[in-house]
Design a protein around this nucleic acid. Structure first.
Lengths: 195, 195
DNA sequence: ATTATAAATGAATTCAAATTCATTTATAGA
DNA sequence: TCTATAAATGAATTTGAATTCATTTATAAT
């Protein structure tokens, strides 16, 4: 009996991420993905039920990575809330610096994925947000943060800002170094604009 | 000869905005838009060349409104940079509070629109960003802002955070009042999280 | 070397929705 | 009242890509 050569599932996911990043999910063609992965259209369907599932899988592993790292971070002792916020920024930047296409897909398609039936993506997002809120609440208790900061509002703002600016960086990585982008964002979250 | 009744062009744009907001551009059906606007599919094509143009028109007037107001704001004398930042937040919130569906479309479809051929949307976005950078540069000169803040990074972050959080508010307007959301965001931009 | 079978292929099929256009409807002007 | 013509309609057409599946290919087992 014939055996599988290489890791086609991984090849397909990688190709799909790149094509979705460039074209956007809805304009991406399975034929483009197949070509980029170096196999035929039919083979894509041997490994994935359909186009939606491809996107779901990408988000599943993305969210699991983000949540895993973030969960570990919040549980780390001897880190104050400010350091934890920096840690979250690092997790997000590390994730997408390593794989810029993923940043584009995350920015462009999160809403679509959340609306797919039978997916727990709203939950993943909510978990992430709730980790953020936990950190901010901690910082408030430690009197590191302004006591009147509305947690929910702050977390939304930071999530949106972080996701968008990481994506911008992946689009123009030459404009500012990753180091500058990353530290710039940490400063704004900590100190805002005012002197 | 027969004359046009009402303002069908406006009805179609309004309906399209609502349907695009709920379904996302690519899953939205012209038939849904026609039904919501109270006219037939063919009539949509009497007023708009195709589906893409419908989205383009929505963004065109949205951007023009945002840029118009922002332009006026930066030119207002006797406002310091911090007040101008607050003004931008107000402009964005006013725009979308008045028409929440527009906020969803802006969040979900900006990237798609930017990639449409023959559109100046990259330019609109760049103009908006450059207004932001101008304000931040001003604040730096007035010694209101941290001198080491990277303008480009800060503006990206703020744009993304603002757009996302306004959209979140439109999704769950009951969770926090508009007033709380708006002032919370102003505080974070000004002062960050730290005491 | 032959066989059985899993893996892979890609042309053919299916499907859904965008777009068109022949037909109908309403009204301004004669 | 009767055109002439613009406006509106929606069934029919077109389009384009997702998905299928009959066929081919490779290899493990005998």
């Amino acid at each position: 009996m014939r055996r599988k050569e290489g890791n086609k599932e991984a090849d397909i996911l990688k190709a799909a991420t790149e094509v979705f990043a460039r074209e956007g999910f809805h304009l991406a063609k399975i034929s483009q993905i197949a070509e980029k992965a170096g196999l035929s259209v039919g083979t894509v369907y041997l490994y994935f039920e359909n186009k939606d599932h491809l996107l779901q899988r990408i988000f599943e592993s993305l969210w699991e990575g983000l949540l895993d790292h973030s969960q570990k971070l919040v549980e780390t002792p001897n880190l104050n809330a400010l350091e934890k916020i920096d840690g979250i920024v690092d997790i997000v930047f590390d994730t997408f610096a390593e794989n810029p296409s993923l940043g584009a897909v995350f920015q462009k398609e999160m809403h679509h994925v959340s609306n797919l039936k039978h997916t727990p993506f709203r939950t993943y997002f909510e978990q992430f947000i709730s980790i953020g809120e936990k950190i901010l609440a901690e910082g408030r208790e430690q009197s590191l943060f302004h006591p009147e900061t509305n947690l929910h509002v702050a977390v939304s703002f930071i999530f949106g800002g972080l996701r968008f600016s990481v994506h911008q960086w992946t689009l123009h990585p030459e404009a500012e170094s990753l180091v500058i982008f990353r530290s710039g964002i940490k400063k704004i979250i900590r100190n805002g604009l005012s002197v």
